[in-house]
Nucleic acid binder design. Structure first.
Lengths: 332, 332
DNA sequence: GCCATTTACGTAATCGTTTACGTTTCATAA
DNA sequence: TTATGAAACGTAAACGATTACGTAAATGGC
């Protein structure tokens, strides 16, 4: 069945299109009686407003763009899902843009956003920071994660990475570990650096030295993590715990330890970061720091919504979402 | 910088909007000279066409909806990603709709699709089949996966589940297994049933009986899988291999076996289905059947594209994508 | 040079809404 | 009764593109 237009509805009722539009938008200027008549006909013919026509006139498409590195990555996907769950019931539709790998894709995306006239953008950073250009188009932008310092210009929602690093390290220390290896992403990005700062803070609080040869920087890759741990063992460096800056790296560490017949958690304790679904299923199941992707997405969506609909510019440019300690089998 | 309109561009050039529109759409009816002049001005002012205005006129939004159960599930996300990678370079944008959990969300989505005027729909089935209504709106629909028999009415892209089941079982048999436990999703949906048929086919070809007490139907859940295997062991049923109808269930089986101190693959061999990322990282790494999500998505997108742009109705209503055997450490 | 085509462009209607402005209706007060 | 104001509704111009149709200019053939 093809859609009705406002004009057709108006003709059926013997009123003007203006009246129909008014009751559709509840903008007043009609009697109770006509409201009921109009509504019943709209209902009867299952009228759906044509968003393009409406958008052309009002310059609002009721759609937001979610830009992320890779939706096949559970972490980003979960955040995007939370965004959708918040925004869909409010009448918005979500356009997903994967930036992955392609550098000039960013350009294509920005052009597309502009010509489609999205009402807002949520930018989830992973590999690279927010491109400055996207701020130039005077359309609301909210960022999840902050990779580089962008000043006060943008609204950022992020996990409490520092405290996460602290929590993980503190647990290991409380469990009696003396030499905690930090296995971290080699890139200089804020979230990872913050996790390391939390690690160092916990050590200092417990009057332990921060040893450079216990801090390993590697690329974000499972086999790299595995190789790195094997290397450390070969070098004869003593350690009784591994804090990996992500679950993926922790899994690699786990594999290396199990290959070397080291018992987890008896010989070496391991803790990751993120709490991806699989960390629960590994064997032994992985202790980790939970990132609240649900809340990251919801908060970002909420800020964007208020900005778009009520023109409320977020009051604080940084919002920090708490993280949680998840104890499983790789720690005591 | 705010966007230019065709009218403004035309005024700058001293031509009509029609001429500008014509060179924009390369529809002919202009000289080489004016084409160059127009293009240079378009370039200079970084003109972006307003998709809403264009869509209103042409009734095409250059956007497609991807409906899936849950984008946080890697399997669905990968298919959606492949769709995006195919369709974005062709000028389409992707609207993602998660149906998860919410029954009446399906209704909301369908209404939204209609009022937004998407040019096409790709429906990725997971938990539930395609709702009939979506076919009524005379807009191109392509389905990935087929849960129930829908007749010839729809275009379906799916993995060769039957052959996957066969490959998995055949490997186990060739490895000398005598009693292969089939751990399957309890739901009566085609993909799972087909995997079982492949399992039975391999057994019959090797003159082995299909034993009912070796076929376990459980809900789609890791701990359920674990529980089920523990139960089988408690019942004293002999088995030397497990073929799980998905990697998730295989992981559960693995956990149960390791808890019972059964060695994988020496005492029991295990093989899953899907080849999710994590199957590679489990310990021991999981042998499995690879579903080509890349190809599933690309093919679906290709069919939809031809349908939308060239009005080519897909010639065969079912397209089967080959699966592959991935041997890792849980099989010999 | 003249007529017939073809080419190049302009004019204006159209897509389906919203909304400023104008008009009618009606209740109320003087 | 009549003036007054509010309430209810209609008219028509936008929003920014596309495109059928008309017209002027260029081209070609004789």
């Amino acid at each position: 069945m093809v859609n009705m237009t406002i004009k057709e509805i108006a003709e059926i009722l013997g009123v003007s299109t203006a009246t129909v539009s008014r009751v559709l938008n509840k903008s007043g200027g009609y009697s109770d009686k006509t409201e009921k008549r109009v509504l019943s006909v709209l209902e009867k013919y299952n009228y759906q407003t044509n968003v393009m026509a409406k958008g052309l006139r009002t310059k609002s498409t009721k759609s937001v763009a979610v830009i992320l590195p890779d939706m096949a990555n559970e972490y980003f996907a979960k955040i995007a899902l939370a965004i959708e769950n918040y925004l869909m019931p409010k009448g918005y539709s979500i356009n997903i843009y994967n930036t992955s790998a392609d550098i000039n894709k960013e350009q294509v995306i920005l052009r597309d956003l502009q010509s489609r006239g999205v009402d807002g953008i949520i930018y989830i950073s992973g590999d690279q920071g927010l491109p400055n250009e996207s701020l130039k188009h005077n359309i609301p932008v909210v960022c999840v994660n902050q990779l580089e310092d962008l000043g006060q210009e943008v609204t950022v929602i992020e996990s409490d990475n520092n405290h996460g690093g602290y929590l993980a390290t503190d647990l290991l220390l409380k469990n009696g570990c003396q030499n905690i290896l930090l296995l971290r992403d080699e890139r200089h990005i804020i979230p990872v650096d913050e996790r390391q700062k939390g690690y160092e803070k916990a050590l200092k609080e417990n009057h332990k030295p921060v040893k450079d040869d216990l801090i390993r920087r590697i690329s974000f890759d499972v086999t790299e993590a595995q190789r790195s741990i094997e290397e450390v063992i070969k070098e004869g460096i003593m350690f009784d715990a591994v804090f990996a800056s992500s679950d993926l790296l922790a899994i690699g560490a786990l594999k290396a330890l199990q290959k070397k017949e080291l018992k987890v958690p008896n010989d070496v304790q391991v803790i990751g970061f993120d709490n991806v679904t699989f960390s629960m299923y590994s064997n032994p199941s992985l202790s980790t720091i939970h990132q609240d992707t649900q809340e990251l997405g919801t908060q970002a969506a909420k800020y964007l919504f208020d900005w778009m609909e009520k023109s409320i510019l977020p009051s604080h440019s940084r919002t920090v979402i708490p993280v949680g300690l998840v104890k499983r089998e790789t720690t005591k």
